[in-house]
Design a protein around this nucleic acid. Structure first.
Lengths: 363, 363
DNA sequence: TTTTCCCCCGCAAACGTTTGAAATGATATT
DNA sequence: AATATCATTTCAAACGTTTGCGGGGGAAAA
């Protein structure tokens, strides 16, 4: 019927025309481009072109299409778009757990930048389990995500499932818990420096016997933080007895290990814990034993977050800037997705920051 | 070529056949059903049916298809499936924030059950902003999610955007922060009872002058918790002066409001806070003023989580079972998605549980 | 009047998959 | 030998969208 207009009936009352349009009863489902076309008596391709402002389409047709589209709340179906374009505009994320201050902060950064860039985000949590991580990879690959961000689980020692992502031709970016055996884009915290600064701070405030409650050594972050600890002690010519490095990175483990430390012959006067939860639990145990923080024992944690403000005294900690990590990871991924493809793998290092609070201010 | 087999060449060495198959160079993209069909010299529909174990297809063909599918790591494209079936097998979730113990717990529950049920999950955070919530709805609708779970933002007072979800014919389930103006499935905590129990506990342990740091009154949860507070006091014939109910639900507000309370003429001897963060901050302020918890002032919070174990003393709080809430919300949504559609709207109430810890054990 | 040109628009194919209907070929029945 | 029967496979349409190409028709040029 639009043809008539071109033939000289342009004075046809637009309102009349539109009111007729309104009679269309809404489907339960979504309005499609075909519905619009049928109602207007034009072809779907014309509607599509009109919507994209194609120069082939006359202004009058464009206007009619746009009015009906507004009236009927037409939205292009992203699924059809994806089928056509081969891209789902979705990125997959695998984290060890969501209920975790640091990771939820990273996720927040991922979410914010991804949505601003027109991508959707799909999360999977591995719950620190290798098997679930493998399943998560499977799930995301099946979902045809355009790219994947991963922070690996504590129990992951094999990496075939991650190589499979590469083989499927899907860009992969590691963040925080990276896998150094796989060449890929990575976003890491300068854990070593953060740990070094934390321990140096303990030394400078007078600690002589500093224990490190360390993380899993199959993870880079566990190794790096331990190395920072060792470097600081070496720098000050302080011996590093092996028994001062203890694998302990959960509150449960702290309840088992810390009491023994406090009763031991040469009780530590400083503790550097691999994370805040362990540090906070240690603090409670120390106080229960009638010792004072920081007077008797200084404490520094890692991942300054809500926790560090809630303890009494407040907990000195190394801030990791999780939000930044999330944003950088997405930035790297999108660069690879939309770039020319000839990019070399990058490793972005997010600086840490020692935040000194009550638990390490001795004097 | 498979035809020959049926014609009597079944003894053809399978291995030889397969080795030939392997010569196919992998696309950068994904393997499709057409690639499989072409390589085997059969039609795509045969491959599709073979994969589904259709009885029409001969065992020999099925075997050949399955071997090649394994070899080439074929995965059906969910996008094509969605286009066909009209369902994306994805559910959308809108939460006020992700970096939040309660919500991340709920998300964890949502994620676990959704994946077990074969659904994907897409998250948006409103950051407690009405505008972002509207945008999130827009995003999810454009993504053609099959259903949406929402916990509304503190600043949301209009609900047109939520009604739009309904108009689009997409099932909607509210959780925790519900909207009582919209008839829909809901999952709520029995906030009123939780608050009532908390305050009753304070009264029973000897508190005479209990202040309620309340949440936003445009949210059900804010109103319900206040009502529970009032009911408990009424039951014990304790007057409820208006000045004892103070809007204060963040750490920042606590820093402004609580000091005044402590210096006031009739200092409270009990505080019931609408959430743990406010309670924890209040505890710090109380201690800074040289008062003791719980001897001078008892404290109870809401949403028992990590926080309640970290404070000193530990914080009595009302456990909300966030993980259960998430699972129930998904359960309701899936029931509606896969049900006959003639279901009546349900409101699931998750019971709360008062967890008494150090901050309210007076004697 | 005929030719040329340009403006608009429709056609058809394509993306990957499913599914009922139709076709094929071979065997069994009459 | 002709027909019915069966098992197996292919065909075609459909989901919603995009896009290059071809065509209709009106207007200007010859």
């Amino acid at each position: 019927m639009l043809h008539f207009w071109r033939k000289g009936l342009n004075k046809l009352n637009f309102e009349t025309y539109c009111s007729r349009i309104c009679t269309k009863e809404m489907y339960k489902g979504q309005v499609t481009i075909k519905d619009i076309a049928k109602e207007l008596g034009i072809s779907p391709s014309t509607v599509s072109k009109a919507l994209k402002g194609h120069r082939d389409i006359s202004p009058i047709t464009k206007k009619a299409v746009k009015e009906l589209v507004d009236k009927w709340h037409y939205r292009p179906d992203p699924i059809a778009l994806s089928l056509k374009g081969g891209l789902s505009k979705t990125i997959g994320v695998i984290v060890p757990e969501i209920v975790h201050y640091f990771f939820s902060t990273v996720i927040s950064g991922i979410e914010d930048l991804a949505y601003d860039s027109g991508y959707h985000v799909m999360f999977c949590q591995s719950n620190e389990s290798y098997e679930r991580e493998v399943k998560a990879v499977e799930t995301l690959l099946s979902s045809r995500v355009d790219g994947i961000l991963v922070s690996i689980a504590k129990t992951t020692m094999k990496f075939d499932h991650l190589l499979e992502i590469r083989e499927a031709g899907i860009p992969l970016v590691f963040f925080d818990r990276i896998c150094d055996e796989i060449d890929s884009d990575k976003v890491v915290v300068d854990d070593e420096v953060g740990a070094y600064e934390a321990v140096k701070h303990l030394i400078k405030t007078g600690c002589k016997n500093i224990v490190h409650l360390s993380g899993p050594q199959n993870l880079m972050i566990g190794r790096s933080r331990k190395e920072g600890y060792i470097r600081a002690l070496n720098e000050y010519k302080i011996p590093v007895p092996g028994k001062n490095i203890i694998n302990c990175d959960t509150a449960e483990e702290a309840r088992i290990i810390v009491p023994g430390l406090l009763r031991s012959a040469n009780r530590p006067d400083g503790i550097f814990a691999v994370n805040d939860l362990t540090a906070a639990e240690s603090m409670k145990i120390i106080k229960q034993h009638g010792l004072r923080v920081p007077e008797d024992i200084s404490l520094v944690g890692f991942t300054s977050g809500m926790i560090s403000d809630l303890t009494d005294p407040t907990l000195s900690s190394v801030e990791q800037h999780g939000y930044e990590i999330g944003k950088e990871a997405v930035k790297l991924l999108i660069a690879r997705l939309e770039g020319k493809g000839d990019l070399v793998f990058q490793t972005k290092i997010i600086r840490t920051e020692l935040v000194v609070k009550g638990s390490s201010l001795k004097q």
